[in-house]
Amino acid sequence: MPEGPAPAPVIQRLRVRYAKRGRLRFTSHRDISRAVERAVRRAGIPVAYSAGFTPHPKISYAGAAATGVASEAEYLELGLTEPRDPERVRRELDTALPGGLDVVDVVAVPPGSGRASALADRLEASEWRVRLDGIAPDEAAAAVAAFLAAEAVEVERLTKKGRRRFDTRPAVSRCEVDRRASEAADAPCAILRMVVRHTTPAVRPDDILTGLRQIADLAPPSPPLVTRLAQGPLDAATGGLTDPLGPDRETAQPTGDGAGTAAVPALRPPAVGVDAAGAHP
């Protein structure tokens, strides 16, 4: 039986936005979680551990981008046993992680906000950039128009549960060719921008490319370069995404001591909330 005292409880939760860039896009989700655990240890961040025979660090991930897909907006949450300045954690974790796994933003979850504000629930959709080398922007635009005009675009994919057939069209809230970016690229290509809802089964950018191939014979000669630009709540008015850490930032403003802050030691400067808010333009 495990001996000794119970593990120290979580007294601060930090939400971390990180990017997966360049050759590091070939890391799998498991690779990243190992790298983060080691970086947390090297950086001396006081992460909490679960109880039991094999204690695990309290690090949770929200919807990770697939192996080979780059991302500017991945999210994880750290449970700490001591409060830390989020900006300091951002710096230290970024230094300890390999270049290409870059920590973009760290926000403290306001005490008392509880499960109801689970980060995963706020990640309603993703914005993607998909670079198709060797495809002319006009050709891509025609395919996108045909896709958007369709009632349904069913595709098939091998999932963990076997071969599944599903409709990709309803998940796509926006899709267009970024002509300026396409023309500015270093080689002939078409660059797509799309906002896709997180549904079950998940509709991935490559499912949409499969759909474009089916509906308009759009067949890129080489594997596309896919980057997740953002994740967050879907803004019904604009069809775009808002910052999923926004609510934490707002409530993290020093608005006086609520019941929920009682657990936080007094040495924590109220300025932390201001710092975190200030870090994000």
Binding site: R23, L24, F26, T67, G68, G99, G100, P223
Partner: peptide, 14 residues
């Protein structure tokens, strides 16, 4: 690299 299994093994940067 997107065409091979476990591409990270060929990337280096340890």
């Amino acid at each position: 690299l997107p065409r091979v299994q476990k591409p990270i093994q060929y990337v280096g940067g340890e």
